[in-house]
Amino acid sequence: MSNWFPPPSRPRPVEGGLKARSTRGAIAQTWWSERFVEVLEDIGIGSRLQRGRSYARKGQVISLDVGPGSVTAQVQGSRTRPYRVRIGIAAFDKTEWAQAERALATNAWYTATLLAGEMPEDIEDVFGTLGLSLFPTTARELSLDCSCPDHAVPCKHLAATFYLLAESFDEDPFAILAWRGRERVDLLDNLQAARSGAPAADGAELPGRPLAECLDSYFVRQADTSTPSPPVTSSTTLLDQLPDVSIAVRDRPLVELLRPAYLAFGCGDLSERSD
Score class of each variant (00 low, 15 high):
16 G>Q: 02
16 G>P: 01
16 G>L: 02
16 G>R: 00
17 G>R: 10
18 L>Y: 07
18 L>N: 09
20 A>Y: 04
20 A>Q: 04
21 R>Y: 10
21 R>W: 08
21 R>E: 15
22 S>D: 08
22 S>E: 13
24 R>H: 14
24 R>G: 11
25 G>Q: 06
26 A>S: 13
26 A>N: 08
26 A>C: 07
26 A>G: 04
27 I>F: 09
28 A>I: 02
30 T>K: 12
30 T>I: 01
34 E>W: 02
36 F>Y: 14
36 F>P: 04
38 E>Y: 02
41 E>L: 09
43 I>Q: 05
44 G>N: 00
44 G>A: 05
44 G>R: 06
45 I>N: 08
47 S>H: 09
47 S>V: 13
47 S>R: 14
49 L>I: 05
51 R>K: 14
51 R>S: 03
52 G>V: 10
54 S>K: 15
54 S>C: 02
54 S>V: 11
54 S>M: 11
55 Y>G: 00
56 A>C: 05
57 R>W: 00
57 R>Y: 04
57 R>H: 02
58 K>L: 14
58 K>G: 09
58 K>T: 10
59 G>W: 09
59 G>E: 09
59 G>A: 08
59 G>S: 08
60 Q>D: 08
61 V>R: 03
61 V>E: 07
63 S>H: 08
64 L>C: 05
65 D>T: 15
65 D>N: 14
66 V>S: 05
67 G>S: 14
68 P>A: 13
71 V>W: 03
71 V>S: 04
72 T>W: 02
72 T>P: 00
72 T>V: 12
72 T>K: 10
72 T>A: 08
75 V>L: 04
75 V>S: 04
77 G>D: 07
77 G>H: 06
78 S>R: 05
79 R>K: 13
79 R>D: 11
79 R>F: 06
80 T>G: 06
81 R>K: 15
81 R>L: 10
82 P>D: 00
83 Y>G: 12
86 R>F: 00
87 I>Q: 02
87 I>W: 03
88 G>A: 02
88 G>P: 02
89 I>T: 06
89 I>Q: 07
91 A>L: 01
91 A>I: 06
92 F>T: 01
92 F>R: 03
92 F>Y: 10
93 D>T: 00
94 K>N: 14
95 T>V: 12
95 T>P: 03
95 T>Q: 15
97 W>H: 03
98 A>S: 09
99 Q>Y: 05
99 Q>D: 11
102 R>N: 10
102 R>K: 15
104 L>R: 03
104 L>Q: 06
104 L>S: 03
108 A>I: 15
109 W>C: 03
109 W>V: 15
109 W>I: 13
110 Y>K: 10
112 A>R: 14
113 T>A: 13
114 L>N: 11
115 L>Q: 13
117 G>W: 07
117 G>D: 08
118 E>N: 11
119 M>T: 05
120 P>E: 08
121 E>C: 07
122 D>G: 08
122 D>M: 12
123 I>M: 07
